[in-house]
Design a protein around this nucleic acid. Sequence first.
DNA 1: AGCCTCTAGGAAAGCGCTTACCTAGGAGGC
DNA 2: GCCTCCTAGGTAAGCGCTTTCCTAGAGGCT
Lengths: 350, 350
Amino acid sequence: MATLADVARRAGVSTATVSRIINNSPKPVADALRERVLAAVDELQFVPNANAQQLARAHRSAVGVIVHDVSDPYFAEITRGLQRVATDHGRLVIICNSYRDPERELAYVDLLHAHQTAAIVLAGSGYHDAPVTARLDRKLRLYESTGGRVAVIGRHQHAGDAIVPENEHGAYLAGDALYRLGHTAIGVIAGPRHLTTTTDRLAGLRRAARDHGRRLTTRHIEYADFDRNGGAVAAGALLDRHPNLTALAALNDSMAIGALATLRHRGLDVPGRISLIGFDDMPISVDVTPALSTVRLALEEIGVRAMSLALREPDGEGARVEHATAQLVLRDSTAPPPGNGTRARRPGTP
Amino acid sequence: MATLADVARRAGVSTATVSRIINNSPKPVADALRERVLAAVDELQFVPNANAQQLARAHRSAVGVIVHDVSDPYFAEITRGLQRVATDHGRLVIICNSYRDPERELAYVDLLHAHQTAAIVLAGSGYHDAPVTARLDRKLRLYESTGGRVAVIGRHQHAGDAIVPENEHGAYLAGDALYRLGHTAIGVIAGPRHLTTTTDRLAGLRRAARDHGRRLTTRHIEYADFDRNGGAVAAGALLDRHPNLTALAALNDSMAIGALATLRHRGLDVPGRISLIGFDDMPISVDVTPALSTVRLALEEIGVRAMSLALREPDGEGARVEHATAQLVLRDSTAPPPGNGTRARRPGTP
DNA sequence: AGCCTCTAGGAAAGCGCTTACCTAGGAGGC
DNA sequence: GCCTCCTAGGTAAGCGCTTTCCTAGAGGCT
């Protein structure tokens, strides 16, 4: 493996000169020399050792991203936004999947810290687990104290800047839409209990119920994994328990799509017999049949904004918190309950 | 930022001892010392500088993954497999999106090389661009010559081990199935011309046509981007050109789903009026209506196998090439053409 | 012609770690 | 009781770069 010194020897110059040339530093270098060095670099197929560069240089460059799971479309979208901005700034992105395991998340923070990344973006729900949260917080602060930048997506606590999606408000919108359509027997397909996203969205649904003079009982809520299969299973459980449900609200689109499969399987027409609404507005949600009513979170844009925060120069004004708006998107999976005279309300896709 | 030396000073020992303790090297250390050091590490919140470690250490640890786009479900699935194996081996994965740009791919190979990753996994179609391919090849070989391991997915050329999906064979199966159902007017929604995956799959379709005494004319092929929108546009173009098509073969599922949207939009019943078949069997393909007939590639497994290759000890027997089998999955989007007496053949989902 | 000022390029000191090699002291053998 | 052999721990030489500081020579000025 060729080193800087090899190149220098080959070109008959000092390592300092080679270094200046390959990093095209402002220091002027004679053209003849420059060419000789470049030729040597080429002949030796020299690739500078990035670890050595990082060590010797003061500034940091790469940025780390910790998400629950990139292969989940929700995070895939966010990640796309994160990447775009990072790439535009010439930054390398290191993506880490925590698979919703807080311990792994902690380990990754250490790891990114150790690798001297310029920033860490933490995307995904927080946990209802005080000790873990506190530990995370400490690590993040420590990282910040060494000059690292932190941006979190979707959690309130912790250090650094934050993008917080309107989870409560969005869920309120979804619930409100269902009640307005005339539904009274609504089942909720919730995510894992220990995730704050679950409780935030549930809270919105509860508030909508209250506003319509109803209450969401625990027996109408089924907790499951935030994925397709979780949704399928939860829908089944809910239906077994309350055969007369006329609407299902899923706390994300993946679960809603799973629920849709269960409903289809059981021969329940959507939205004729039962309405279904999701959350997130994943790209695929328009392609299922019926097209899914949902709450839109501009996922890619959230990524873009988060990375912009992570890359901004700290202005000494402390952490910045931005909200990401949620927006109701009524498509074809919601309608008035059967037997309700109200005429179908189908604003369609905007 | 605390360094090893700070910890050593604090604990009143040498840096060598601290290093040994935090890396729990085999060298024995008295318990009293170990505790003192660990306490110091804790008090100082010491996080070792990974760059310095990498530089000083001989062995490499992280592995780099270059994919076209993680947010594309095809790559998301593969990546999931890659990650799982890497994590099981305690390796950090660095994911890089090339966004199908060969130049960016080249740059990422350099970058991963520079960062001294232990292996590079390159996933995604190759390019019909000899100069670029040659450059990539050279870079990869250079990387290998410095001890890096290389594994590629879905391309024939290049250095290192390879997993090659049966693109030609899979497409043959799809085409064959359509012809057997009695279709004669088949339109093909192809990916970008310069990708080898496109030409490989097209070749399979061509062979199927030949075997059934037909020919695939260029006018029956529409090239587009390998994504949902590409499929939607291409389907429209094809239908405009040949209104009597009774079947559409898309070269991947994303395009097929886009095509489905166009067909729905135009009021063409699938599969009653027109059949549709995809390729890849993405998880979402069962959830669209009608459920998509397709060719299954065990994506996650491909990722698992690729990472296993990348992490294996080179055995001196040279590059290993493994094939990933393609398997026909007939679901609800394919049927005999309208007016054909043959009774519907619907093996359903396995 | 002599002196001063620039400028291009080199020497060398780190960056924060790992590890081969060395040393001092204690245990054990005779 | 002295010598040898371990062993726990320390010393210091790198790993491959960047960058500060320095030097030598060229050119300009009077």
